[in-house]
Design a protein around this nucleic acid. Structure first.
Length: 427
DNA sequence: CCTCCACCGGAAAGCCGGGTCA
DNA sequence: TGACCCGGCTTTCCGGTGGAGG
């Protein structure tokens, strides 16, 4: 049977479709069908949700003109075949570091391509687990970007460097390497990685420049002086956005993301105010707006109300905590369970000793190997960093030094979390 | 003012499961 | 196949310490 015989074919296909539609209609559960139909017909506040996502790159980046100019100035020599200085970019989360850097280097590459200038830009996020958070993996990733695949493990690090240099020399061009969240890399792999990287310039014909992006300013001070001076030949600071700036960013995105009239009075202002309250994080503001939109869709509201923002904030927090808890391994679960089960003293705090004692008995009960106190201590501080608990080191004088632990999870969520853990450790 | 508790937290080393290579 | 490598998790070892109580 041929389908592509003009009108007749189309007609037959149509008929088949109509027939199938009938069969489907009878077989389908009535309720489900109605749901899907309803979903299709339902009006959404969104027009193009993409504009609110982290990966979205707007045409114009507001309030970062100064930084763009700086980066462009530093990188421009690469167009003439010179090696640009290394750059250290610093700013809190959600201040547009990654966005601006990517944007500027993309423009640079466009020019380079048009003028046939040999130049390469490599972007790596060092925080992505299993991709580039150790020396070996970082170099392997870089080599992979240059078209040289390296096994994910097994080789001596030396070999990986050699392979990378070889790949570098093959193309004989300058490279700009963007290391996002470089503090994570140094934290885990030490600063000699960067040192080695900068020294590669001496033995290879292609030159590399590094753009290091970090949201931790202290990080640079803890570096080896040699590494520090070479990494921060240039420094660019991204100050937090203020509430007004976040407002204009939100408006820019909202225009694309939402249907007309989908936002009620004051929604953008409130989002901006929330985000500005915790250190001008534009990413958070965008997420807040997106989730608020999803909530109002689910409630069949044609416009986003201010109340939806409050709900969105709550939901984001809740989802974050649940996500953390469910992805944690067993030992972490037992420790968290110990913390949640113990009843705190008058000041609403616990001490490391008590937690460890209960942890030990729980391990016995569940036939789990018991970790040492040293390790448990580390896990407790991990929970602290995740914001699940608050643990600060205090001294009880004669009665020693310990951590003072208090739970930071909202009361309402505790039963749910306990249930998740109980199932996971089969108490 | 000194002591001494009960834990903190850095360093190093061991073990394991993943892998390469000749 | 065995020698060797890596990362991640853990243990071992041990010096360090704020401040209540003597």
């Amino acid at each position: 049977m041929t389908i592509s015989t003009g009108n007749q074919g189309v007609c037959i296909v149509n008929q088949i479709f109509i027939y199938l539609h009938f069969v489907w209609k009878f077989k389908m559960e009535k309720g489900l069908e109605l749901f899907f139909e309803g979903f299709l017909k339902k009006e959404s506040v969104f027009f193009d949700k993409k504009a609110l996502q982290v990966s979205y790159t707007p045409e114009i980046i507001h309030h970062r003109e100064e930084q763009i100019k700086q980066i462009a100035n530093i990188l421009a020599p690469s167009l003439k075949g010179d090696r640009p200085s290394n750059v250290f970019v610093y700013g809190k989360t959600g201040t547009g570091k990654t966005l601006t850097t990517k944007h500027t280097t993309q423009r640079l590459m466009e020019i380079a391509k048009r003028e046939n200038i040999p130049l390469g830009v490599v972007y790596l996020n060092c925080k992505l687990k299993r991709s580039s958070d150790t020396e070996y993996r970082l170099i392997a990733q870089l080599a992979a970007e240059l078209g040289k695949n390296i096994p994910s493990t097994g080789l001596p690090t030396e070999e990986v460097y050699k392979a990378f240099v070889k790949a570098l020399n093959k193309n004989k061009q300058n490279y700009i390497i963007i290391l996002d969240e470089i503090d994570q890399l140094v934290h885990k792999a030490g600063d000699n990685v960067i040192y080695n990287l900068t020294r590669l310039n001496e033995e290879s014909e292609s030159q590399i420049s590094i753009i290091g992006i970090s949201n931790d300013i202290m990080f640079i001070d803890n570096l080896d002086p040699r590494v520090k001076s070479s990494l921060s030949e240039e420094e660019i600071v991204f100050p937090p956005y203020n509430a007004l700036q976040i407002q204009s960013i939100l408006k820019q995105r909202a225009e694309i993301a939402f249907n007309k009239e989908a936002l009620s009075q004051g929604v953008i202002e409130k989002c901006a105010a929330y985000a500005a309250r915790d250190h001008g994080d534009a990413r958070r503001a965008l997420e807040l707006l997106r989730v608020a939109g999803e909530i109002s869709d689910r409630k069949n509201s044609k416009i986003i109300l201010i109340d939806h923002i409050d709900e969105a904030e709550e939901k984001i927090d809740r989802d974050r905590i649940l996500d953390i808890v469910t992805t944690q391994p067993k030992q972490y679960h037992i420790i968290l369970f110990s913390i949640l089960s113990l009843k705190p003293n008058r000041n609403n705090v616990l001490f490391t000793g008590e937690v460890y004692e209960l942890y030990k008995t729980l391990c016995n009960k569940t036939n789990t190997s018991t970790l040492t106190q040293r390790r448990v201590s580390d896990i407790i501080s991990e929970f602290d960093m995740l914001g699940m608990i608050n643990a600060k080191v205090i001294s009880k004088g004669r009665y020693g030094r310990t951590r003072e632990i208090s739970v930071e999870i909202p009361e309402a969520m505790l039963p749910q979390i306990k249930k998740i853990i109980e199932e996971s450790i089969k108490l």
